[in-house]
Design a protein around this nucleic acid. Sequence first.
DNA 1: ACGGATTCCTGATGGC
DNA 2: TGCCATCAGGAATCCG
Length: 320
Amino acid sequence: MPELPEVETVARTLAPEVCGRAIVRAELIGKSAWEGGIGPEALERVRPVICGTGRRGKLLLLFFQRTGEGVCSSRPTPKEPAVPDMSARWPLMYTASGTVQAAEYFPKGAVWPGELAALAFHLRMTGRVFVFDADVPAGPHTRAVFTLDNGRQLFFDDVRKFGRIRCVSLPELPAWNFWNALGPEPLELSGEAFASRFASVRPVKTLLLDQSVVAGVGNIYACESLFRAGIRPDTPGRALSPSRLKTLHACLKEILLEAIRECGSSIRDYRTARGDAGAFQNHFCVYGRAGEPCLACGSTLHSVRIAGRTTVFCPHCQLG
DNA sequence: ACGGATTCCTGATGGC
DNA sequence: TGCCATCAGGAATCCG
């Protein structure tokens, strides 16, 4: 399932395929994955130029070029961005000319053609985004096809049909509940700020999965970071000392960055925009290993349900 | 108001 | 071998 590292990888591998290209056609297939007020016909009318790709939480973003700006006017051959600077502020925007802060792209008073500022994809469980040649037909699970001005096609495939696509304008953003409710990015948060968000009676695992506490963490990286931090997933957030919460934050950041370096975790459906599998699933310590021995102490890993998700932990290494 | 349970969806898996 | 029940899970929505 695509979480922060997987969506980050898709954004990075997608950039060289779409930067500098205009969307000229938007076709929806079957039960619509489209949500929100701006419809696909607006895309076909405006034909916005994609100037960069990025991510916010688990949302994949295609940023559109602003009115009167020549961000991609020369249309250089884009390169895939290098592994991002660990000290950079996140989220980043990957453009043809380099990496910039996405936040800088939404200044006061900026204007986009037809007010279309970005296309947002939520991949949920099984969503995938690829760019294919012009003659590739839609597959059985293709739910949307965006044709680019070079004839290539951006496919949105989704087996379980949980994924969603939304075209966002700046005026519309304040009315988008999902966007508004997103908490800070774990990679740009300070340890103190992270710890202060866990003062709750709810289990720490539930808080990690809550996108308003921190954005982008799903079941895999919640389980793995709690194991590395040595914290039992059912511990109430406010029962953890600031020091242990800072440890959790440090472990979460380490694991997210390791997973980004490995191009994410491929359990079943997830692939990069090039169609490659990630490799971080080979480094799981607890996720999917219930009943198997703990890699640290040999104890049998336990499985419980927290916040409706399977939660695997080591009763010996992870303490409340 | 808050938090837990339910719902959406289909492919993989396991038991009989 | 084949069939059916179960499981996986992000987030909106329902409900106590």
